[in-house]
């Protein structure tokens, strides 16, 4: 069953066009890697999907047209976004960050802190005082607390130490294996993406230039389209 469908998506920042025809589909339970060089429109695509910026073209989630919906209504349909740069609520504690966003479902405070043990130890600590890795865990945990059907991770491991990156990737793998949640991943780590993602869509200059199974993302494809 197709959960997210994006057809010929166009978007712009004011007068500056940013997307010129993005196409992608994501089935329930599938993990899709959204790849591309810097500035090719990956984050803009995510913002358009989440209705954070206006866009034209086909955009539906579970058969529902997203175009008429405000951002919060889209999130309530089941899109959980972990935005680029973590962006936790700095004045709230770890626990408060998680409770503020919570909705009923299988992801509870206990389950999130079990997935990310460092958060359990820092429950009463303000988010602003956490390390970058812990803030990233908190951002993922906050999105999970909304009990989404689709988790969108925008550069979830960017700028983190290798050991923390490994923890994040282990958590993403666990989410996939234990819950079968659909995941849209933006990342530049080809090796880790290959282990988790089922399919890939590559953007170039604001439009889809390649799509296929992750196993077909060879070194040549990565070099030609992603520059890695």
């Amino acid at each position: 069953m197709i959960l997210l469908k994006v057809e010929n998506l166009h978007a712009s920042y004011g007068p500056v066009p940013a997307l010129f025809g993005v196409n992608l589909e994501l089935a329930a339970g599938e993990v899709l890697a959204l790849m591309g060089r810097n500035g090719m429109g990956k984050t803009t695509t995510v913002k358009a999907i989440c209705r954070m910026i206006p866009a034209n073209g086909g955009l539906s989630f579970d058969g529902q047209d997203l175009h008429r919906m405000p951002s919060h209504a889209v999130a309530r349909l089941g899109l959980g976004l972990v935005p680029e740069g973590r962006r936790c609520f700095r004045d709230l504690t770890v626990e408060e960050n998680l409770i503020a966003a919570a909705r009923r479902g299988e992801w509870t405070l206990q389950r999130v802190t079990a997935l990310f043990p460092p958060l359990e130890a820092r429950r009463a600590q303000r988010a602003a005082s956490l390390s970058g890795g812990e803030q990233q865990m908190l951002a993922i945990g906050r999105a999970l607390m909304t009990n989404p059907r689709l988790l969108i991770l925008d550069e979830a491991t960017e700028g983190l130490a290798p050991i923390v990156r490994q923890e994040i990737w282990s958590a993403i793998t666990a989410i996939k294996q234990e819950t079968g949640m659909a995941i849209l991943l933006i990342d530049k780590s080809l090796r880790e993406l290959a282990q988790v993602a089922d399919r890939a869509v590559i953007l170039g200059r604001g439009k889809t230039v390649w799509s296929g199974a992750m196993t077909y993302v060879t070194a040549d494809v990565a070099r030609d389209y992603v520059g890695i």
């Binding site: 989440c50 954070m52 405000p70 951002s71 919060h72 209504a73 999130a75 309530r76 959980g80 976004l81 935005p83 962006r87 609520f89 700095r90 004045d91 709230l92 408060e96 960050n97 409770i99 503020a100 966003a101 919570a102 909705r103 906050r142 999105a143 607390m145 909304t146």
Partner: peptide
């Protein structure tokens, strides 16, 4: 949860929207 969400909305309304809350 309402107070925490309100506090979060004070800090970053656009981020609150992405977790499904209407600031």
């Amino acid at each position: 949860p309402f107070g925490l969400a309100l506090n979060a909305a004070r800090q970053a309304p656009e981020r609150v929207e992405t977790v499904g809350l209407n600031p």
